[in-house]
Design a binder for these strands. Sequence first.
DNA 1: GCATTACTAAGCCATATGGATAACAATTAT
DNA 2: ATAATTGTTATCCATATGGCTTAGTAATGC
Lengths: 115, 115
Amino acid sequence: MDNNYDAYFHALSDPTRRAVVEHLVRNPATVSELYAAHTMALPSFMKHLKVLEISGLVRSEKKGRVRTVYIEALPLASAERWITQQRRIWDRRLDALQNLAEHIELNTPSKDGSK
Amino acid sequence: MDNNYDAYFHALSDPTRRAVVEHLVRNPATVSELYAAHTMALPSFMKHLKVLEISGLVRSEKKGRVRTVYIEALPLASAERWITQQRRIWDRRLDALQNLAEHIELNTPSKDGSK
DNA sequence: GCATTACTAAGCCATATGGATAACAATTAT
DNA sequence: ATAATTGTTATCCATATGGCTTAGTAATGC
């Protein structure tokens, strides 16, 4: 079921790597193109790409001396689903509490003190 | 705008911490209650809680000797939104490519070789 | 008051992380 | 053939992380 959450979330926990993802969802890009937006040394940047690739969020192919990097949609969707599911459970709980509050309000004696 | 993505995603990159989140979206819980499901030493577990709390994904209050932990909905939603947005951009791109493909197909000479 | 419960603090340790530099391919352009 | 481009490999470094133990403190229960 593609549950590599540790790696997915770890990969997304760094701003450089999120910037790469933000680039790649718009267009595949070569290492140089991706690197252009950043100021660190290239080998440092390459490490980030490797983290992304090992996690599975990204795939790459080398042709000649140029490596092109592509986003992988499924892992991103998988990470999204985990969060969405948690939020949904939380939302349902809020609803339940809300309903409970209304129910109590309806059955609570008002100012007249009637039991 | 509550953009603490580094901390949010880092917090979610550990299975122990995700388990805590999964628990807390259903119910607030004390440290002991949360700890019950885990086998590591308590101080190790506490470190995970601290990571969650510093990130902002979680809030806690101490009453007497008991600390109760609550989920914070907004950061979770914020992390979700970041991913959702990336996926949407990616989806739109796919649609565009799909449309392009159809367009080309319509305007492509078929077997008869007609121009 | 004393024991138990529920954390908290301090410090140790091995490994991971995020940065750097230097040197080395391997392609492609001139 | 040489030079320039585009990565890659190998090391090094400081700090962070995720685990541990040991020794507290502060509330509560008996």
